[in-house]
């Protein structure tokens, strides 16, 4: 019974990682940039959701939508201002810029509102908890899992069935060839950032509802974990990010359950390194042989 309860805990945590990881993976897949600012967009999303709920007095779903739209715009702005000029520079330069942007968002937020935590109001989502074979599953966990799954399916649909999705796949496969085929690469990249950031925004609101406490530096650790999740599943692969997130969440829960809660993050990284050494392309990735 206890193990199932722990699994449920892990899946709830993992679905948040998965949502953030999706954005990481999409951006990496298309521009090969480790976007360290992604975790901070997640934080901004949580705050936008918070202010929509408390100041504008909106419910969960409107707040979620507002936050997603705002984060999408924010993500595109970041891409246009900070990353686009560096598209032809070394990738390490772009990485440093991403770190700079991340610091800027964190400390800009602290400058604007202080570093103290904020608490999502009670009862934004009032759902009864479910009791299944002695396992208590809170309504919020189900809502989170449901929302995450829905967004992931939507994303799969966008990537595989729409025109913009096709363009994304083409650009990620070969940017120059895509350009020759008449695909507007700039717009496609912006669209990728928009979708990835919207997902991060959604994750932010969901995180707020589930964990209550939000603060300007909350994005750092989940951002890093989501990144690990993305690599775990095979960076650049969308189902991989979902699986990676869930696996990571479950691993963390099980490690804590075994009584080693202080080693939790360590185990996550050990798993990451083992995966990298034995299956460098991740769980879902294909190993591509390097040609001379």
């Amino acid at each position: 019974m206890e193990v199932i309860q722990q699994l449920v805990n892990g899946i709830s945590l993992g679905s948040i990682y998965a949502l953030i990881a999706l954005g990481y993976t999409m951006v990496y897949g298309i521009v090969k940039l480790i976007n360290f600012a992604h975790g901070d967009i997640f934080m901004v999303g949580a705050f936008i959701g918070f202010y929509s709920i408390t100041i504008l007095d909106l419910g969960f779903f409107p707040a979620l939508l507002i936050s997603m739209v705002a984060c999408a715009i924010f993500g595109v702005l970041i891409e246009r201002i900070a990353y686009k000029p560096l598209r032809n520079a070394t990738r390490i330069a772009a990485l440093i810029t991403a770190i700079g942007v991340s610091l800027f968002i964190e400390y800009g937020t602290i400058y604007a509102r202080g570093a103290q935590p904020e608490a999502y109001p009670d009862g934004v989502v009032s759902l009864k908890s479910l009791e299944l074979f002695g396992v208590k599953i809170s309504g919020q966990s189900i809502l989170i899992l449901g929302t995450s799954l829905f967004l992931m399916i939507l994303l799969q649909f966008i990537v595989h069935k729409t025109k913009i999705g096709k363009a994304m796949r083409a650009v990620s496969h070969d940017m120059d060839a895509a350009k020759l085929m008449g695909i507007n690469v700039n717009n496609t990249i912006s669209a990728t950032f928009a979708i990835g950031s919207a997902l991060a925004g959604a994750a932010g609101v969901i995180f707020g509802v589930y964990y209550t406490k939000i603060e300007p530096l909350m994005g750092i650790i989940p951002g890093l974990k989501a990144f690990v999740a993305a690599v775990l599943g095979g960076i650049g692969i969308i189902p991989g990010a979902m699986a990676g997130g869930l696996v990571l969440g479950v691993i963390e829960s099980l490690v804590s359950a075994a009584g080693y809660s202080l080693w939790r993050d360590g185990v996550a990284f050990v798993v990451l390194i083992l995966i990298l050494i034995f299956r460098p392309a991740g769980l879902f990735g294909k190993n591509i042989r390097e040609k001379v």
Binding site: L86, T90, I96, T97, I99, V101, L103, F104, E106, Y107
Partner: peptide, 22 residues
Amino acid sequence: PEVRMVIYSLVLITMMLFRPQG
């Protein structure tokens, strides 16, 4: 203290944008 990290991050971003090779 209020603007420390904001300025630091801006320095970082601007430097990389205008001189990506360092």
